[in-house]
């Protein structure tokens, strides 16, 4: 594998399991949350990660940030393996990698003022700054995310969800990170606020030269912000391609099913659309199907799909897909969206 310096982050053969206790006297079961994860992120791009709940998308975000320790594999940050980094060095490195959470209020300590919350990472990562310097930085970042300076001494419960999310974003930005993992940053917000936050994120991305990993279950949102999109199913990558490719020419049957399930805010299109609804629900990751994990819900599945796990193949230019039958499955002329 060539190591072009342009790759900010590279994930190699990542695997993460959890043990789940099933009862007092039985042996704990192993839940494979992520397996065989390989991808890289270029500087300045936005990578969307989509999948149903339980597909491991949040776990992946946390493994990248070393908030969870992966079982196997490497997380290469500019060529340096974060999983092998001593704790103290990793703590220093955290200035470069930040996270924005789904539930804006839950992610803010209710006992601290806005100013204290935003300044908190600085206290540990930039101890050389004095109180005035910290305060000046906090005010500057608050302005950048659209918070009024007079809010600095208020407490989180005095804010609405959208403003609380701005506080969370400010806290992530204060250490001048290079990469931010956004874990469902807008799904707890009202529609009009959702759009404001999405616009804010894309503005900040340009202003601060950020690279974003955007985790969401909402495909419309992911499509809106991402350059490339990674589709996860039961802890494995099933498809990785640019946003336009994914939405215009999905190769994996799962991606197609996901796309057709997305509600479209357009009544005529919605009526025309032939929803090829996916049957059933995501199987338990404790006991995943053999071979291709998607075969139980796939309408193109053949007997051999149950025997062999499809490899993640590189097709066309840099697209990845994990399906035995991607060549045979026709993508309808009129794309799945009916647009």
């Amino acid at each position: 594998m060539d190591q072009t310096p342009i790759n900010l982050l590279e994930i190699r053969d990542l695997k993460k399991t959890f043990s789940v206790s099933s009862g007092l006297f039985s042996r704990p079961l192993t839940l494979t949350a992520l397996e065989n994860i390989n991808f890289s992120i270029r500087k300045g791009e936005t990578l969307g990660i989509v999948g149903e709940s339980g597909c491991g998308k949040s776990t992946l975000g946390r493994c990248i940030l070393q908030l969870l320790a992966p079982d196997e594999g490497q997380v290469l940050w500019l060529g340096q393996d974060l999983t092998k980094l001593p704790a103290e060095e990793m703590r220093q490195r955290r200035a470069d990698l930040q996270i924005i959470f789904q539930d804006p209020l839950a992610s803010l300590n209710p006992r601290m003022t806005v100013g204290e919350i935003i300044a908190d990472p600085l206290r540990t990562l930039r101890p050389e700054l004095n109180k005035q310097e910290r305060r000046a930085r906090v005010l500057k970042i608050m302005e950048a995310v659209g918070l009024l300076p007079e809010m600095i001494n208020r407490y989180p419960h005095e804010f609405s969800g959208g403003q609380a999310q701005r506080i969370g974003i400010a806290r992530a930005l204060i250490t001048e990170p290079k990469l931010i993992v956004c874990d469902e940053p807008v799904s707890a917000l009202d529609v009009s606020i959702q759009a404001q936050i999405l616009n804010l994120l894309s503005e900040l991305k340009d202003e601060f030269g950020l690279t974003l990993i955007f985790i969401s279950h909402n495909l419309s949102v992911v499509r809106h912000v991402s350059d490339r999109i990674l589709v996860l199913y039961l802890g494995r990558i099933v498809e990785l391609a640019t946003g336009d490719e994914i939405y215009e020419k999905p190769r994996h049957p799962y991606t197609r099913a996901l796309l057709t399930a997305v509600p479209i805010p357009d009544p005529r299109l919605a009526r025309q659309r032939n929803i090829d609804a996916l049957k059933g629900e995501i199987p338990s990751p404790i006991n995943p199907p053999s071979g291709c994990t998607f075969r139980t819900r796939c309408r193109f599945a053949k007997p051999y799909c149950a025997e062999h796990r499809p490899p993640l193949e590189t097709i066309e230019d840099n697209r990845l897909v994990a399906c035995h039958r991607w060549r045979e499955i026709e993508v309808p002329e009129e794309a799945v969206l009916g647009a």
Partner: peptide, 30 residues
Amino acid sequence: MAGITGKDALLTEYANRLETLDAPKGRSLT
């Protein structure tokens, strides 16, 4: 879209003023 990133000169001026002045206190949980 000035409202979002708040680039208004007004806001900056306000921020400068507040640097010297104390911002209003919030209501803490206690």
